[in-house]
C-alpha cells in the first residue's frame, strides 16, 4: 500500500433481519479504502447495498463482522464518540428538501452543526464563509430565507455548506445530484470538485451514474448485491472494464455509443437470496452466451464464490484495477 488510507473497510458485513426471519446480506464482505483528498465513486443499482455501506461508514449501521477504521482507529459506537466522529465525517443526502428542516432558516440550518459540535469562533462569520464557499453569494442575502424560498440547486448548496462548515475530512454524498435538474447538476459537481481542490477533503460519492464518476471521481468501485465486484482508477475502469456487470452497466449508458448494448435480464436478486457461486452468474452474459463454458470456468461460476478481487491482466500491479470474476486472471 502506497499511502495509508483515511477510511478503511475490512471485510465488512451488515445484515438485516427481514420479515419471516429472512436475513438480508445487505453488505456482504466489503474491503474498501478512501484516501485523503480523493473522490471515490461507489457505483451500483438500487438494492446493491451502497446506501447501507454509506450508512455504515457514518456509524449509523454497525457491521456484524469486519471493521471500519478512520485515521487508523476503528469506529466506536458510543454517542460521544460518534458526535466527535461526525465532525470529521459528514453526509450529504440525495434530496436536499428532505434534509433541511422546513421551519428553520438557512442560517439556522447551516449553523446547526457548529452548535452541536460546540465549535468556538464567531458563528455568523463561519456561516457566511460556508455559504459563500458553496456558491451562495452574498451569503447574508440567504441568512433569513427558508428552504422553500430557494431553488433545488441552492438547497443542495445549503446542505453542502452545512456539512462543510465543520471542515470535515470526509464527505459521504449519497446521489447528491440525482434529484436536481440537468443544468444544475454540473454546477453542484463543480462545487464538489472545487471543495476537494481547495480544502483537500475526500469525497465518497454513492451513485448509480457512471457519467458522474467520469466527471469527478479519481477512482470507481462497482457494487453488486453486497459486494464490490470491480474497482480501479476511473479512466482505466471505465475505458477497459473487466467485470461483466461493469461492462453491462457501461453499455446501457446512452452516452457510450461505441459499445453494443448488453441489457441484462431480470433485476438484481433479493439480498435474502444471494445466488450460489458467483452471485452474478444467473444474469451474467458470459455464462448465458456460453463464453464461460468455452473458457472452462462455468462450473466454477455456478459453485465457487469469487470472493477475492484480483488484479486485471495488463495493468501495472500498483494500479489497483481489480475485479472479482473467474474470467479475470
Amino acid at each position: 500500500m502506497t499511502d495509508p488510507a483515511l477510511l478503511e473497510l475490512r471485510d465488512v458485513h451488515v445484515r438485516f433481519r427481514g420479515r419471516r426471519g429472512a436475513v438480508a446480506q445487505a453488505v456482504d464482505g466489503v474491503d474498501l479504502d478512501v484516501r485523503a483528498g480523493e473522490v471515490l465513486a461507489l457505483v451500483g443499482e438500487s438494492g446493491c447495498g451502497k446506501t447501507t455501506l454509506a450508512r455504515t461508514i457514518l456509524g449509523l449501521e454497525r457491521p456484524v463482522e469486519g471493521e471500519v477504521r478512520f485515521d487508523g482507529s476503528p469506529l466506536e459506537y458510543g454517542n460521544d464518540w460518534l458526535r466527535r466522529y461526525r465532525r470529521k465525517v459528514q453526509m450529504v443526502f440525495q434530496d436536499p428538501t428532505g434534509a433541511l428542516n422546513p421551519r428553520q432558516t438557512i442560517y439556522e440550518s447551516v449553523a446547526e452543526g457548529l452548535r452541536i459540535q460546540k465549535v468556538p469562533g464567531r458563528e455568523e462569520a463561519l456561516v457566511a464563509e460556508a455559504l459563500s464557499r458553496s456558491g451562495l453569494r452574498p451569503p447574508e442575502r440567504f441568512f433569513a430565507l427558508f428552504p422553500y424560498e430557494v431553488s433545488g440547486g441552492q438547497r443542495q448548496r445549503v446542505v453542502i455548506a452545512g456539512a462543510m462548515i465543520l471542515e470535515p475530512e470526509l464527505l459521504v454524498a449519497d446521489e447528491p445530484v440525482s434529484s436536481l435538474d440537468a443544468s444544475v447538476r454540473g454546477e453542484i459537481l463543480q462545487l464538489m470538485l472545487g471543495l476537494v481542490r481547495e480544502t483537500g477533503i475526500a469525497i465518497l460519492v454513492v451513485t448509480h451514474d457512471l457519467g458522474l464518476a467520469w466527471n469527478i471521481a479519481d477512482r470507481v468501485a462497482v457494487m453488486y448485491l453486497g459486494r464490490i465486484v470491480e474497482q480501479g482508477p476511473t479512466e482505466q475502469l471505465l475505458s477497459a472494464p473487466h467485470h461483466p456487470y461493469t461492462k453491462a452497466l457501461l453499455s446501457v449508458v446512452p452516452e457510450v455509443e461505441r459499445l453494443e448494448q448488453q441489457i441484462l435480464e431480470g433485476e438484481t436478486p433479493d439480498p435474502t437470496r444471494i445466488p450460489s457461486g458467483c452471485r452474478f452468474h444467473p444474469r451474467c452474459p458470459l455464462v448465458q452466451s456460453g463464453e464461460a463454458a468455452r473458457l472452462g470456468i462455468e462450473e466454477r461460476c455456478r459453485t465457487e464464490d469469487p470472493a477475492e478481487l484480483r488484479s486485471v491482466p495488463g495493468t501495472a500491479d500498483g494500479s489497483g484495477h481489480v475485479a472479482a470474476c473467474h474470467a479475470v486472471g
Partner: peptide, 19 residues
C-alpha cells in the same frame, strides 16, 4: 450528461449558472 471516455468531460462537470 458527459460522454464517458471523452477527455473534455473528464474532471470537468459542465452546468449552467442559475436556475
Amino acid at each position: 450528461f458527459p460522454i464517458i471516455g471523452d477527455a473534455r468531460f473528464r474532471m470537468a462537470p459542465s452546468g449552467l449558472p442559475g436556475d
